[in-house]
């Protein structure tokens, strides 16, 4: 049994990518390997062309991990100062505290900070080396709604500077709202890889509905991308991966009216792709150079 089996992952510079999957899908194992905390049995991990440990040592890769504990008997600022002292070059301490939104509590002992504040402290520590790649493992679990929103605002602002961000999550809405790219994992394999829209369309695509008396079921089923056609009286329901083609046909070649195009939500895709049936191939061929 392998937690991760045959993951081929290349990230583009400046990309925000989400590793999405249910518990046990291999998200943490994947991130640990990128950080050199675990080694693959076979195959290699290279980050920016070097060993993970080397990339961390040079401050090129930083991470926010849930399992990483903090010292309770020093202050927030001391924690960041200590971490800064380990890098050859680092961002000013108060600047990263500010960017992580914890400058106001800099003199507080870490032991009396909330879970969300401690998580933002970990984020501040990860900002210190100005890394090219920031890895975050379930960064917002245990935060309340407001804390989660603030946290992602900080990450988003930071990524605008061109940093590559890879985060693991099992919150669909997080992946949908904050990632440019979603990598869906199931049992240690990538079952989908693309934009949120691409991943959505992978499972069942969209459904097109219209009112059409005497619909020609065979003609509709022959359209490109159509998976199923259902007739309910004068109402047609078409599942398709190419909703544009179906809609265009309905509006130009038939008397159909009240045409609706309904997108499957990501949750449908998530459930379809991570359930027991074999998943479809990845939408995107990994290409380009690694971040």
């Amino acid at each position: 049994m392998h937690a991760v089996d045959g993951i081929d992952l290349r990230l583009e510079l400046g990309e925000i990518a989400a590793l999405l999957g249910p518990n046990g899908a291999g998200k943490t194992t994947t991130i640990d390997m990128i950080l050199g905390l675990g080694a693959p049995d076979t195959g290699t991990v290279r980050v920016l062309g070097m060993q993970p440990r080397e990339a961390i040592s040079r401050g090129l890769v930083a991470a926010v991990l849930q399992s990483g504990g903090l010292l309770k008997d020093i202050t927030v600022r001391e924690t960041v100062r200590l971490t800064a002292s380990l890098y050859v070059t680092s961002q000013p301490v108060d600047e990263v505290l500010d960017r992580a939104g914890i400058l106001a509590i800099a003199n507080r002992l870490v032991g009396s900070c909330s879970g969300g504040e401690q998580q933002r402290l970990r984020f501040a520590m990860a900002l210190l080396p100005d890394p090219a790649l920031m890895a975050l493992d379930e960064p917002t679990s245990g935060m309340d709604v407001e804390g989660r929103r603030d946290f992602w605002t900080a990450i988003r602002q930071d990524a605008e500077q061109g940093r590559t961000v890879l985060f693991a999550t099992h919150y669909l809405e997080e992946a949908d709202a904050y990632a440019d790219r979603i990598i869906l994992l199931r049992e240690g394999r990538i079952v989908a890889d693309g934009t949120a829209a691409e991943v959505r369309s992978l499972s069942a695509g969209r459904s097109v509905r219209a009112n059409l008396a005497g619909a020609d079921k065979a003609a509709l089923a022959a359209l490109p991308g159509v998976r199923s056609v259902e007739l309910r009286g004068d109402r047609v329901l078409i599942q398709t991966t190419d909703s544009d083609a179906v809609a265009r046909y309905l509006l130009t070649a038939t008397a159909a009216h009240d045409v609706e195009v309904v997108t499957q939500n990501l949750e449908d895709a998530f459930l379809a792709l991570t359930s027991d049936e074999p998943g479809p191939a990845a939408v995107r061929t990994p290409a380009g150079t690694a971040a």
Binding site: L65, G68, G69, L70, L71, L86, Y87
Partner: peptide, 16 residues
């Protein structure tokens, strides 16, 4: 104590 806190693991994310 630092092992139990997970601080040792946190430090492994740094050049130390």
């Amino acid at each position: 104590i630092e092992r139990a806190l997970g601080w040792s693991r946190q430090l492994r994310l740094t050049p130390l």
